[in-house]
Simulated scan of single mutants.
Amino acid sequence: MAVNTLMDTHYTFAKQQGVYKGKVREVYTLENDILVMVATDRLSAFDVVMPKGIPYKGQILNQIATKMMQATEDIVPNWLLATPDPNVAVGKACEPFKVEMVIRGYLSGHAAREYKAGKRSLCGVAMPEGMKENDKFPEPIITPATKAEQGDHDEDIAREAILSRGIVAEADYKVLENYTKALFERGTEIAAKRGLILVDTKYEFGKTKDGQIVLIDEIHTPDSSRYFYADGYAERQQKGEAQKQLSKEFVRQWLISNGFQGLEGQTVPHMSDEYINSVSERYIELYESITGETFVKADVSNIHERIGNNVNSYLKEL
């Protein structure tokens, strides 16, 4: 039997001023610079939203991001105020920077595909010769991407281009770089305690009205990060075997093997209920691996009503 999934929302909260619908999240703007961010069960790959939702995916993303925000708030301030529902985060509104701060500790995913194509520089950062896919970089590298408008692809961009085009002021960009390195270091430590390797990830930042730079959106989730299992990593590298990983990369690889990379004229392959459930199970596996806690499935018999009631109860107390 198919499990209910949250594909879209249509709320009107008290003092609501607007709503923005992203690829996965729907963000409601309220008075007093309050944002209500709903994590749906939509699945996005190659910047295309898949036609079917993944059961519990929104809850998993929201709860991992919340735990990771709490685990890093001592080193980087963030936007989060509360999580009144398993799928919902409430926080401070701010002006997002128009770059995603991607940081890579290993030659994997997009970086590996570029390297295989003969490139030895990514976003103006040199990649050493003689590396194999999934090898560790001598030092983590920051490879920013421009923030995609809905439906458009993210684009790699060099630090120099970000500064010369005035996308981010140099003083602010230095803060973003320092925060990115600090968060990746903390994320690496958290992952190591769970027997995982944080391979690469992305962070998004914004500036509050009083000028504070804060971490926004999600962090260290399977949608924004790639993890390997530490156990057996070295042996698999030595033998040239694929790494055992927990991330959305397995979805991308499945799509590629079925002839889809988000290119013009390509059609999203059929996702059977069996495949959808296997994706859900992989997300739950990552949740339990990275948090060290058993995943508790929220009641999805009426997701829309549950979210509405929980958010409205919280807003009344603000």
Rank of each mutant, 00 (worst) to 15 (best):
T208D: 04
V268D: 02
D210A: 10
K207E: 08
E235N: 10
R226P: 02
R252K: 02
S225V: 04
T291I: 06
T267S: 15
D217Q: 07
K248E: 08
F295D: 01
G206S: 06
K209E: 14
I197D: 03
D299C: 04
R194H: 07
Q237G: 15
G259F: 04
T267M: 14
K248G: 06
E293T: 07
Q243K: 13
R282M: 12
V251H: 01
I197S: 04
Y229N: 10
Q243D: 05
E249R: 03
D200L: 05
Y283W: 05
E218Q: 10
F250A: 06
E281S: 15
D210V: 09
E288S: 06
E235G: 12
L255H: 00
V279P: 00
T267G: 07
A191T: 09
D217A: 03
I284S: 00
T188L: 09
A234D: 15
A192D: 12
E285C: 08
L263Y: 09
Y233T: 10
D273I: 12
V268M: 12
R226Y: 01
E204D: 12
G187E: 00
H220T: 11
L196N: 03
E274F: 08
H270P: 10
F205D: 11
F250L: 13
F260T: 03
G211H: 09
Y275S: 02
G259V: 03
F205E: 06
S257K: 15
E288G: 09
K239S: 08
Q261L: 05
R236A: 14
W254R: 02
Q212D: 14
Q238L: 15
I197A: 09
R194D: 07
S257C: 03
S280Y: 05
L263F: 13
P269N: 10
Q238I: 12
S301P: 12
Y283V: 03
T291D: 11
A234H: 08
N277T: 15
E204Y: 01
G262V: 02
T188M: 06
I276P: 00
